[in-house]
Design a protein around this nucleic acid. Structure first.
Lengths: 338, 338
DNA sequence: TTGAAAGCGCTAACAT
DNA sequence: ATGTTAGCGCTTTCAA
């Protein structure tokens, strides 16, 4: 019963194999009665189309590639699961492909992968979303793609974004509302476009509140805990250190907490700390981080749906390209001490 | 040049397609001169066999399934990357399949997955490694499998393990050597077989050192930070609390740190804390955790190699089934205060 | 050592 | 609305 083939189903249902094919592919022009008969036969035999035969004949692999360069594990898992969810429900499989975006062989590596697995389309995650050479390869090979959280505004119909700028402004406003006036900011990795928008949001909010944007309160980080710790140390070494630090991601916020602990600075009593992403670490450190929940899984689901509708040449049913973040207030922020 | 087919290569090399097939599949009985000529043609045309055609004709999918039920993100990523590494180098692709081990539909779900993607073999990670009903389904469908870190000793030739017991004993001995006499232990999730062996190692070491195994110093955790925090709170509430706590994984150790911070207990001055796994969190919390490095990636690489050699009916070249862990001493442990 | 022919199970193009 | 006929690009017999 494992090896039921389309011919078996056709015979049992008393139709031609083409009709069975029409039913399994939800094609139009099949009489209801026939469809029912075929479906019954399919169920009875436990028939499943052979993906290889399908791919060979249709010249489509029913495979979606997920390209990424090592963001945090939890980010990845969320993207994977969001994407998988959509893939499975539409009969596609997901092939994951980690790669090194700084590698000189990126294009070669990508080309090899595209040919080996013959994916029908790919999903790009940051920072790959912003690499022109990747998009170029994909376009040359006519492979559909969707970008998650790109920094630019190109290929708008093939991008899913979130409101990095606005929500960062909102977090900054929240800190200001708590009475903070000297608010430090730890920037994300310069190669990560979306993360950089967070800085812009911070700057915007300060300006709206008529607070000065002080260079000395801005530290450059690289998305890691270690770089966050280093950045925080620089800020805390100032003669007039900030009373709040907003880091462009949770890992750097966790690094900030480490720096504070090391110095015996009590958070949030002496220092408020805010992160971004709401990764698991936000609730694993002490105190739990006030942060911004990024809807990664939903973004990946939508991105995948967008890709699949592209593959089918169907218009995308859901117009939403932007899925908003939300503030999550926990224990690492408090009213500024007088 | 994308669409070079086996016939193109054959024509260019002046041989039959069967000979090309022999070369690409590393089959014997090809004259060296012929082989060289074919390889040149392959290179010149940039020929890659079409996986679908291959699968269809050979009745093999060249797909390996990775089955898991949500261990921590970093654990997963390590398993994925280890497995991918081996897969890619051997021309296989990896299909990831998260599933819910407590679901009543587990077997149905698994069956559906196995038929849909037609994987040639699967890799089981904990806690799925220990579910008899999964192995049963796989055996019934004659699908090869390998287990990572199973708790029992069955299917030894299809299992990759580590030295949970011994290394846990070693960590315990280390704490004892630091002068600790009241050492608490936070157990892992009872459904995770391998994690439970860690408790046994702890018990063994205490016995070896002629220290009593006190029930009140043992807390039940469930692998989460939260459960670790709860367990630690129970232990620290004792009239005579432990001076060191060994948690069966890093997340629970991080929970222990949270509990300590909350109470103003200074780690490691007032309390030593040790974890297990060396996940990223170990270096993200403060202080950095003394822990045990589990070679997850290597285990996954080996498991995959084992699976592939099984698929080829070849004897496994590397006999190692056990890949040992190592102690990692960081800042969360110190000599017991007098 | 090499090759010819016959499928693998499906979809596409073209009937009917 | 349904069926017929060719392939898709490879591996597997089986010969030579």
């Amino acid at each position: 019963m494992d090896k039921a083939t389309i011919a078996d189903v056709a015979k049992l249902a008393g139709v031609s194999i083409k009709t069975v094919s029409r039913v399994t592919n939800h094609e139009p022009n099949v009489a209801d009665a026939t469809r029912v008969r075929v479906e019954a036969a399919v169920a009875q035999l436990g028939y499943r189309p052979n993906p290889s035969a399908r791919s060979l004949a249709s010249r489509r692999s029913y495979l979606v590639g997920l390209l990424y360069d090592n963001p945090s594990p939890s980010y990845l898992i969320n993207v994977q699961h969001g994407s998988l969810r959509t893939c499975r429900s539409e009969g596609y499989d997901l092939v994951i492909h980690p790669c090194d975006y700084r590698s000189g062989d990126l294009v070669t590596d990508l080309t090899t992968m595209l040919r080996q697995s013959r994916v029908d389309g790919v999903i790009l995650t940051p920072p790959l979303s912003d690499l022109p050479q990747i998009v170029e390869v994909l376009q040359r090979r006519e492979i559909a793609f969707v970008r998650i959280a790109p920094a630019d505004d190109k290929y708008e119909a093939q991008s899913i974004t979130t409101n990095d700028h606005d929500i960062s402004a909102q977090m900054t406003e929240h800190l200001i509302a708590l009475g903070h006036r000297r608010i430090g900011f730890i920037c994300g990795h310069p190669d990560h476009g979306a993360v950089c928008k967070r800085y812009d949001g911070y700057a915007t909010a300060l300006a709206s509140a008529s607070l000065p944007l002080r260079q000395e309160l801005i530290a450059q980080g690289y998305n890691s805990v270690e770089s966050g710790e280093h950045g925080a140390n620089v800020l805390l070494d100032l003669d007039d250190p900030p009373t709040a630090i907003f880091a462009a991601n949770d890992d750097m916020a966790a690094g900030t907490l480490r720096a504070a602990h090391e110095r015996g600075i009590l958070v949030p009593r002496d220092l408020s700390v805010a992160g971004f992403d709401d990764t698991p670490i936000a609730q694993q450190v002490w105190p739990s981080l006030t942060t911004i929940r990024q809807p990664i899984k939903q973004m990946a689901e939508r991105a995948t749906a967008l890709l699949l509708s592209q593959l089918r040449d169907e218009p995308d049913t859901d117009a939403a390209r932007l899925i908003p973040c939300g503030l999550v207030l926990r224990d690492s922020t408090a009213r500024a001490a007088r």
